[in-house]
Amino acid sequence: MIRTLPTSKTYNRCFKLYIVFYFFFLFAPLFVTCVLAFNDSQFPSLPWKGFTLEWFTANLPQRVGIFNDQINLDSIWVSFRVAFFVTLLSLAVGTCASFLFEQEDFRFKQGLYFLMLAPLVVPGVILGISILLFSNTLGTHFETSWNLDVELFRPGFWLVVLGQFSFIATLVTLVVSARLRKFDRTLEEAAMNLGANRFEVIWHITLKFLRPALIGAGAVAFLMSFENFNTTLFLVGYEATLPINLYLQVRDGSTPVINAISFLLIVGTSLLALLNLYFSRKSK
């Protein structure tokens, strides 16, 4: 049954086999995607026709590797910019929210807290369409009332940033709050007795204490934004992010370039994941 209890051999073997199968199931699609990025074939499928790096580096008429594929490179750059701004915005607002819910007291605190959790239980698609609708309503209103044409209210880069921010900020709040709860508030009192004001205390002491959580939350926010599809789908303008761009390519047939991009994404996110793990271990 468990470690300390005697168990039959068959039970142990079956359990082990199950776990092996589970991990096989978990990694098979990723493994195959990576391997086929290096296959010297026009299609991402077997048989194996030899090892090649052409899907990364080539610039031939029939084969354009990812490093020369301008459309995909552009979308990667868009995703990077979106993720950067979403991370910045979510960290700022999420940290404010953590201080608000952990250290302040005010009326309707409970209600506001539940409102803060709401984005977790609203499907991403719904979030996308409601923000699209609302920005459109605002846009129409500004145009008819004041004859103003506001770029922000039309689907595009900044609307994507805001849409992703609206739920990623909740995640940041939860991560940062968990760390802030462990903060010893007598340190604040000590600093205040020595003449520091509230903001000096937060800047010099509390934020230093929160740093590992902020780094961790930032990494998660960046990744969530970089990979977001559901909400982005409705808010995207002519600048497609990487997931949207990949989706359009996968839907209309695929080339090993997609495998090459996937390979880079898998390697990149794994590194980020391990780095995040390292920091979260350190903060404990």
């Binding site: 098979a28 699609p29 990723l30 195959v32 995607t33 990744l223 970089f226 990979e227 599809f229 997931p243 990949l246 989706y247 996968v250 695929s254 997609i258 996937s262 994404l265 898998i266 996110t269 794994s270 980020l272 994941a273």
Partner: peptide, 10 residues
């Protein structure tokens, strides 16, 4: 940690 799209593509 890998994008849902990549996993589905796999």
């Amino acid at each position: 940690w890998v994008s849902e799209l990549v996993r589905v593509y796999g």
